[in-house]
């Protein structure tokens, strides 16, 4: 059974159907990169996996929990699904340390000492231990995104979702963020990444999914999708970005 199972997922905003029926699975420890032109629905798709977007039709099952089932405690389910945003969304009124400690403490997962130790460990891991007392406004974009990853990891999730994590960064900062993500992948984290970094996708992903017009058009290993794409739309997209 897959760690993430998506069955017949449809999503509409009023009359505008963004996702038109998506079926896929992600296995435990698998790293899946989602690529595709803008407006293809890939971000919406990712945001359905922790139900930041309401699901119009179909099912999203994470760790055997149907997210659209009214009996499911969506807050509990989300504790297990970390998310990293394009624009970091750090809490500007908290220090870096507090950003990371906040959720585990607030949700009763850890006491103050455990939360502090965890946060410091995670900061060391993303190379920002010396910024613990800084505020988000004092950090560079790359540093902010690394803190955001640490913040998501503090809840000790089984699954991590990345929504274009490097799109808002200056080019010289992309590397440091991708480096942290590579480490995570190597450690066996189940990850779904919406990205425009084709080099990263090719290097790190176990599978690459190409989306267009609200459908999954192509789904395969990086070699298959990048090396010998079958669909015309994939070919034309890859020609533009590679």
């Amino acid at each position: 059974m897959g760690k993430i199972r998506v069955e017949g997922l449809k999503k509409s905003y009023g009359a505008n159907q963004v996702l038109k029926g998506i079926d896929m699975q992600v296995q435990q420890g698998e790293v899946v990169c989602v690529i595709g032109p803008s407006g293809s629905g890939k971000s919406t798709f990712l945001r359905c996996i922790n139900r930041l977007e309401d699901i119009t039709e179909g099912r999203v099952i994470v760790d055997d929990q149907d997210l659209n089932d009214p009996k499911t405690d969506i807050n509990k389910a989300r504790e297990n699904i970390g998310m990293v945003f394009q624009h970091f969304n750090l809490f500007p009124h908290f220090s870096v340390l507090k950003n990371i400690m906040f959720a585990p403490m607030e949700l009763g997962k850890m006491n103050a000492k455990e939360a502090r130790d965890t946060a410091m460990k995670l900061l060391t891991r993303v190379g920002l231990a010396d910024k613990a007392d800084a505020f988000p406004s004092q950090l560079s974009g790359g540093q902010k995104q690394r803190v955001a990853i640490a913040r998501a990891l503090a809840m000790n999730p089984d699954v991590m979702l990345f929504d274009e994590p490097t799109s808002a960064l200056d080019p010289e900062m992309v590397g440091e963020v991708l480096g942290v993500m590579k480490d995570l992948a190597r450690e066996g984290m189940t990850m779904m990444i919406v990205t425009h970094e084709m080099g990263f996708a090719r290097e790190v992903a176990d599978r690459v999914i190409f989306m267009d017009g609200g459908y999954i058009i192509e789904d395969g290993t990086p070699e298959e999708v990048f090396g010998s794409p079958k669909n015309e739309r994939t070919i034309s997209f890859l020609q533009k970005v590679l």
Partner: peptide
């Protein structure tokens, strides 16, 4: 910014 609410909700906060 909506992202603040989304970030908090994505961490599991009600």
């Amino acid at each position: 910014d909506r992202g603040q609410m989304e970030a908090a909700r994505s961490l599991g906060l009600p």
